[in-house]
Amino acid sequence: MNSNMSINNKSRFSTWKRIKANRFIYFLLIPGLIFYIVFAYLPMYGVLLAFQDVGIGSSLLGNEWIGLENFQRLFEDEEFWIAFRNTIIISFGRLITGFSIPIILAILINELWHSKIKKTIQTIVTFPHFLSWVIISGIIFNLLSGDGLVNGIIEFFGHDKYYFSKEQNLFRPLLYVSGIWKSAGWGSVIYLAAISGINPELYEAATIDGASRLQRIRYITWSGMKPVVVLMLLLSIGGIMNAGFEQIFLMYNPTLYDVSDIIDTYVYRRTFVDGADYGLSTAAGLFKSVINITLLIFANYISKRIDKDYSIF
């Protein structure tokens, strides 16, 4: 009954008695455990499909093992390599644009001294994060449509209209810009949280010592937020093969596959559009996950070497 007894007299009790003493905790864990087993661990077990002969109508169990044949087919597929290349390019593009802007934004917002203006700006810039990509893509299509606002402006300056749904060169920049538009404001919140943890006396002391405003930003604000920046960088390196499925899936079309198809969209099409090649697409998904995890562990190792505090695990 009494759960803290088990802590005090641990040595006198056997494991079983300790479990019994904490039975209420185990009871509370049950619903969540069932959830994780069914919806996270069963699918994880399902990665074995990558080594099996599966097709439409197959289930998770009882398929024939075929070794690496799915991977072999995958690596021979030219479309897969296009998707692979696009995934890397788009991810790096995002890392460069989408990662730095929230940091700058946080520093700027922190420099606003008027608290009402600060709050208004924060409310506006964080808002798009809470809308779905369905809505955002709809808004973007609306802006970029043949008679829409953007083409209106372009025509006003005497240029010809752009047909954005066919412009291969513009697709990736469009992804980055709309990504920033939607997420940069919300992304800055975590950095602002880090900044708010900085001891205010540091700023005072620096001012008394004659530090200029830029120096205070550089040596106090920036150093204060640096651990969080490193953490966020690690996390985004661990997700580098993700490239943003929802956004691309909602914004691309067949004329843009060459520049927009990523591994996740490739998997989707191979499974639900061009037939149901479950084995091949599971293999592609697994390939992606393994690269992600490897990169995460590698980046974590590097940052641990640089500074022990800068690592996730």
């Binding site: 699918p43 077990y45 399902g46 499974t271 479950y278 697994l286 996950s289 995890i293």
Partner: peptide, 12 residues
């Protein structure tokens, strides 16, 4: 950090 991917999820 790791998930089974779309197809196993769909099948489950």
């Amino acid at each position: 950090f790791f998930s089974g991917g779309t197809i196993p999820y769909f099948l489950v």
